[in-house]
Amino acid sequence: METVDLVVPVKSLTAAKSRLRGAADHGVGDPKAHARLALALVLDTVTAALAARRVRRLLVITSDPTVSLEVAAVGVPVAPDTPGGGLNPALERGAHLLRQNDPCAAVGALQADLPALRPAELDAAIERAAAIFAAGPAPRAYCADAAGEGTTLLLCAPGSALQPCFGTDSAAHHERSGAYPLQGDWPGLRRDVDTGEDLRRAADLGVGPRTREVLAPCPHP
């Protein structure tokens, strides 16, 4: 497994990251400011993933027209989400679409709220997963978030099903489903952003340029 193809699911900007509302405008909670922040998180995440040597292709799953236009502008194809379908079915569909032209591809799911992600971290996690797949312990592997409860990255070997179990306590669900936990010092890969405190910690690590620009007037979210 030299490279992987990744699905990145993105909610509508108006519905995404409700606990971050106000983080971009000193607590005012303006919907436009919130949408700019949510979009910046996505764009910094996909830009970092595009720069990873081990990532062959990205596919964003979304029904938000603004997200579709913006990610297409940086070279990422988009497939529409199915309204009411839910996150895990969307990821399964994305994995299926990625494998249409290459049924033997290794595929994975990457969360869209990793503004401090470094390409080298993603490469290292994929390399670790490739070693696990080659050794045989499991055909699936996941990276837990900084709290150890959620999942930021899920990968599966060629010929294996992705079997996403995202949602509350997804790390535990993925492990119970047979996925192997990836261990490594990858702070940006583990720092997903759901709250203002998460955003502050991501900023301490160093966020991407789009998130940095949105936060420029508000140095302490």
Rank of each mutant, 00 (worst) to 15 (best):
M1S: 13
M1V: 14
D5A: 14
L6Q: 02
P9H: 08
K11E: 02
S12L: 10
T14L: 06
T14K: 02
A16R: 01
S18A: 11
R19N: 03
R19V: 01
G22S: 00
G22F: 03
G22E: 04
A23I: 04
A24K: 00
D25V: 00
G27T: 01
V28T: 08
G29K: 00
A33T: 07
R36G: 01
R36K: 07
A38P: 00
L39D: 03
A40C: 04
L41H: 08
V42C: 12
L43Y: 05
A48H: 08
L50M: 12
A52Y: 09
R56F: 11
L58H: 07
L58R: 13
L59N: 11
P65E: 11
T66F: 12
V67D: 00
V67Q: 12
L69M: 12
L69Y: 10
A72Q: 13
A73Q: 13
A79E: 15
D81A: 15
G85S: 10
G85F: 14
G86L: 06
L87T: 06
N88Y: 10
L91T: 04
E92V: 05
A95R: 02
H96K: 04
Q100R: 13
D102N: 12
D102K: 11
C104M: 13
A106W: 00
G108N: 03
G108K: 07
L110F: 02
L110I: 01
A112K: 00
A112S: 14
D113I: 01
P115V: 09
L117T: 01
L117A: 01
E121K: 05
D123W: 00
D123C: 01
A125K: 03
A129Y: 00
A129M: 01
A130V: 05
I132H: 05
F133P: 08
F133Y: 10
G136M: 02
P137C: 03
R140S: 07
A144R: 11
D145E: 12
T151M: 14
T152W: 15
L153F: 06
L154E: 10
L154D: 10
A157K: 12
A157E: 10
P158N: 11
G159M: 07
G159R: 14
A161P: 00
L162Q: 08
P164K: 09
C165R: 12
C165F: 08
F166L: 15
F166Y: 10
D169A: 13
S170A: 14
S170W: 01
A171V: 06
H174N: 04
H174P: 03
R176F: 00
R176C: 02
S177G: 06
G178V: 02
G178R: 05
A179Q: 04
L182Q: 05
W186K: 09
R190Q: 12
R190Y: 14
R190A: 11
R191V: 06
D192K: 11
D194Y: 12
D194N: 09
G196Q: 10
R201P: 00
P209V: 03
P209D: 11
R210F: 09
R212E: 12
E213L: 05
C218E: 07
H220G: 06
